[in-house]
Design a protein around this nucleic acid. Sequence first.
DNA 1: TGTATTTATGTGTACGTTAACGTAAACAAC
DNA 2: GTTGTTTACGTTAACGTACACATAAATACA
Lengths: 362, 362
Amino acid sequence: MATINKSGKAAGIRDIAKALGTSIGTVDRALHGRTGVSARTKARVLRMAEQLGYKPNIAARSLKLNRKLRIAAVLPREIAAFFDPLRGGIRAAAEETVGMQITLDFVDYPRLGSGDLAALESAATKHYDGILFTPGRPRELAPVIRRIVGEGTPMFCVASDAPDSGRIASVAVDAYTSGALAAELISHKLQAPSRVATITGELATFDHAEKLRGFAASLALYAPHLTLLPVMESHESPEDAYRQTITLLKSRTRPDAIYISTANSLPVLRALEEQKLLGRVQVVTTDLFHELVPLLESGKLLATLYQRPQAQGKMAFETLLGHLMEKDKPVKIHRLAPHIILRSNLPLFLNRLTDPPWTAAS
Amino acid sequence: MATINKSGKAAGIRDIAKALGTSIGTVDRALHGRTGVSARTKARVLRMAEQLGYKPNIAARSLKLNRKLRIAAVLPREIAAFFDPLRGGIRAAAEETVGMQITLDFVDYPRLGSGDLAALESAATKHYDGILFTPGRPRELAPVIRRIVGEGTPMFCVASDAPDSGRIASVAVDAYTSGALAAELISHKLQAPSRVATITGELATFDHAEKLRGFAASLALYAPHLTLLPVMESHESPEDAYRQTITLLKSRTRPDAIYISTANSLPVLRALEEQKLLGRVQVVTTDLFHELVPLLESGKLLATLYQRPQAQGKMAFETLLGHLMEKDKPVKIHRLAPHIILRSNLPLFLNRLTDPPWTAAS
DNA sequence: TGTATTTATGTGTACGTTAACGTAAACAAC
DNA sequence: GTTGTTTACGTTAACGTACACATAAATACA
C-alpha cells in the first residue's frame, strides 16, 4: 500500500494511540466498530486515524489472524483443453494469495451434465468456505445452488452463469458478445449472399444459448445478406457432432460458414476435412488447443474465440476470496472479453497451450 | 499459499528446527543460503523443509522486513487517452501490493521525445529503487539508460522497448503482431486488388517500427492483392498528420484502407471525414478513446487495436517489483496480445474509457 | 453506603520471520 | 600458552495487529 507520511514511516495503530494519549486497545475497538468505546473517543480516534493517513498493515493483520480457508472447485474433466487451464488459473490465484492458509480441493466429474449434481452435493456436505463451479444445466441446478447457499456455503459460477439461482457472483466470457463477434468476423469475410450454420453444445447451458442469441442478432443487424440455418445441438457428443455436420454438408443448403460455439469442435472439423471443405467453408471456433494451430496457420480456420480459461479461473478465485474477506461488500459479475485469435496473433497464444498428453516424458 | 499438512497447521521455520533438534537461526541461514552453516546441516535442513512441505509465510516475512520502496514512473502526458490509464494501472498495482511501503512518484513530461531526457535525468538523481518509463527514441536514450542502470537504478520499459539499452525488462503490446493483425483484418475486408496506406507516429520508436514491419510482412505473405503505399510519419504532430492525410487522399493513388499505428488518429479521421471518405476507406486504428466509439458503432471504423494500457501498467509494475524482490531471478520480457475491438465487442470495453474532461464536475 | 453489574479503557501476548547479537569451539599466529 | 580470527550455531527482540484479559470508572440496585 502506498502510504504518505511526513516522518517517512507509515502511521500505525499505536501512533494513533500515542497521539491521543490513549491505548491501542481503544484504537482497535474504535477502528473496527467493536463494542466498548464511548461515542466521543471513537470519533476522536477515527478523526486522528484519518488525519494521520492510517492504513492498516495487511501483512501484520493476516499474520495475526492466520485465517484458514477451505475452497472447492467443482469442475468437469471434459473438455480438458478448457477446464485444465481453468483449474490452473484457479490454482495460480490461490498460490499467489498472501497471508492466508488456503486449502484448495478440486472435485472432478466426467462432463457437464453428467455427474455434476452428485459432485456438487458431495462438496456441499464438506462445508467449504466457498465453492467454484460451472453450471451446465442451470435450470436443474438452480434449486440445488439456492439450497447450498442457504445452508451457508457461498457458491460462485465460472465459465458460465446460472442467473436467478442465488449464486453469489459469476465470472465468464461475455457469451452474447462472443456470438456477435463470430458473426461479425464471418460477415467481413463473406460479402456475397451466403448461408451460415451454427453448432453448439447444450442449449440449456446459459452461455451457449447466449452465444447463439448474439450470433443471430449480429447477423440480422449487420449482415442481412447472410442466412442463418437452424442451430444444431451436439450435446457435447463427438459422434453426434460429426454425424450432424456430415448431414449438413451433404444437404441442399450447404453452408458457406460455420460457427462452432463449443470447445468441442474437432468432430465438426473432421467432417469438413473429409468432405474436402476445409478452407472453402469459413469456420469460427471456440477456445484454443493444439489441433487448431495448423488450421489457423494455414488459413483454413478463420478465427477462434479464445475464452481465456486461466484469466477466468484467476478472476473467479479472486472474486470468491474478495467476498469471503468482506461479506457485505457488493460483488461484481465479471464478463470478460474473449480474445479473437487469427492467423497473425496466434503465436502470442501458443505458450498458453497445455502440453498435449503425448509430450509427457516416457 | 495453499499448504498441505497433516496436522492442519502449515509447517513453519520452528517446526523444522524442532524436528531436527536445531535452532531456528540455523534453519533460517540454511534456507536462505546465508553464511554460517555447515554443508551437512544445511542439507539436513533443506531436506526436512521439503519433507514438511515448508512454505515461507509471506505475511510474517514482509511484516518483519518492513521494506520501503521508492519507485518513479517517468511518462509523457500526451497522448493522455493512453498514458492516463497506463498510470492508472501502475497505481492500481502499487496499491494492491501487500506488505511493502511503496512511494510511487509520477514524473510527467509533455510528450515522447520532448522533455523525456530531462525528466529521466531528474528522476535518476533522486536514486529511486526503480524507474518505469517509455522510451520514445531508444537510440538517443540507450546510453542514458545504460548509465543510470550502471549507477544502480534498475530501469524498466513500458509501452515500448529499448533493446540493447541495458534496461532490465520491458512490458509492451507485441507491436509486430499488432501490425500483422491490422493487415489481416484489412485483407479480410478488401478482397479485390487495392491500395493500403499506413501512418505512424515516430519510426524511431521501436514499437512503431515493429508495427509497420508486421503490417508489411503480413500483407506481403497473405494478401498479395494489396499494394502497400509508402509509410507516412506524423511525428505525433496533429497538423502534420492532417496535412499528410489530405495530400494522400487527394493523390492519384488514393488508398482503399489506412492503418493508423499511433493513438494519434483523430487528425487522420478528421481528414477522412472532410473528404467524405469515412466508411468508404477501411480504417484500422490504435487504442481506444471516446471519439472512436461512434465510428466503431456505425461501422465507419473497421477495428481498433486496443493496447490495454491498464494491463500494461499493472504488469510493468509487477515485473519491476518482482525484480526488486529477487534480484537474481531472471525477468521475463512481456509481450501482451492487443485486443481487437470491433463493433460487436466494443460494449465490453467502454467501461475502461477514462472519463472525458468535459464530464468533470463544474 | 456498600456491593454487584455494566461499560470504558489499559496491558500483554502471540502470529512466523528475520537479523542483530551472543557464545562456544576450532584453529592459526606469535 | 595466550591472543586473535573464523566458523557454526543458539537466543532474542522486534515488525503491527487482534484479542483475551486485567483494571478502572460509572452506574445500578439493595
